[in-house]
Design a protein around this nucleic acid. Structure first.
Lengths: 189, 189
DNA sequence: CTTAAACCATACTAGTTTAATGTAGATTAA
DNA sequence: TTAATCTACATTAAACTAGTATGGTTTAAG
């Protein structure tokens, strides 16, 4: 159930572009984006083209050019990015909502594996289609600020006082929700 | 987030072996198992070896040989089968519980992608490690019987009267659970 | 108008994985 | 002895992955 490097790099870079915007420096060069996550520059250039063609980022060419998000972060759904780079979320084609493919089993309506994998696909989509770049950037920035770490692409650094060691006791997790949800609703961090 | 053909074939075949046992004919030849799901015989032979080496099935050699389950179905957890054939459930190594791998990101504890993918991995494992072959065989057999379809490997056929068209109104789905859970607790099918 | 810094477009590739197939052997029941 | 079956291991074609290489085009600034 792997996410490819392309997908991973795309998401990491989009998160960084979201942070960059939040921090007041929306336009970032590919070289910087690659350096921030230690990615191969040329490989990331390819990925940025895909993101651009799909309308998630836009670019300035020439000297002092770079990439910026083409939409507000809350209009970039994580699941869509994964689908763009890695294809359907569903583990098998016959349970995909966006790219259904008939499977080879003799009777799809009585296939136990299909029912199970439908649950899996719904669980995955339930997370990846529920959260947007906004949510991920939000929790990332909060965690960084809580721990006094300067977000990337910041002007010098906002001199946040360190609160290391102040272990936050997290609220009891409802099974349907996850860590992202918990962190989003936990205003102590 | 794909399941490989090897994993898919392994699960489909284990389900069939579970049905075969339920139907009173636990030992089934590879050729039959392959035919039942239209799989390449030699490929399935490889997969059966893996399942055998891992202790999920056992074999009889020679004429009238075949494979049978080596454990009760409720002792075969689906997630374990997927891990055996396809590797860890986690989308990225740094959120795997069974095969953690450090990722290349500069700061794992403040990585928003990691938090998100941890939710995804927990959602997947929450399903695949929750259900056993017993559950999947159970819902499959119930659905088949409800619709008057003879399970594979049956002696002639138990003359089940057809109830096609009697559409069952399913109970409202609680978000945390899925179709398998619903079908398992729905005694009308 | 030249140059350097950036994005853009395509092609190429080494290595791995996937989904098989092929060949030969060992075991067992009849 | 034979036919049916599992077992073992080798081979393979195609696709995929994660890049690398090469040479553009655009733009700001001197």
């Amino acid at each position: 159930m792997k996410l490819s490097k392309r997908g991973e790099y795309a998401l990491r870079t989009l998160i960084n572009l979201g942070i960059a915007r939040e921090v007041g420096r929306p336009l970032v060069r590919v070289a910087e984006l690659a350096a921030a996550e230690q990615l191969p520059v040329k490989f990331l250039e390819q990925i940025m083209q895909v993101l651009k063609d799909a309308g998630y980022v836009e670019s300035e060419r020439g000297k002092f050019g770079g990439y910026r998000l083409a939409r507000p972060t809350n209009k970039i759904v994580i699941g869509e990015i994964v689908r763009l780079l890695d294809g359907p979320l569903a583990p098998i084609g016959c349970v995909s909502q966006t790219a259904y493919e008939k499977c080879s089993c003799p009777d799809e309506t009585h296939c136990g594996l299909r029912m199970l994998m439908l649950d899996v696909r719904n669980a995955i989509a339930g997370i990846l289609d529920r959260y947007t770049l906004f949510d991920v950037v939000e929790v990332t920035l909060r965690k960084m600020r809580r721990d006094g770490i300067a977000p990337p692409f910041s002007q010098p650094a906002p001199a946040a006082r360190s609160r290391r060691g102040s272990a936050v006791v997290h609220a009891r997790l409802r099974p349907v929700d996850g860590i992202i949800h918990q962190l989003l609703t936990d205003y102590s961090i």
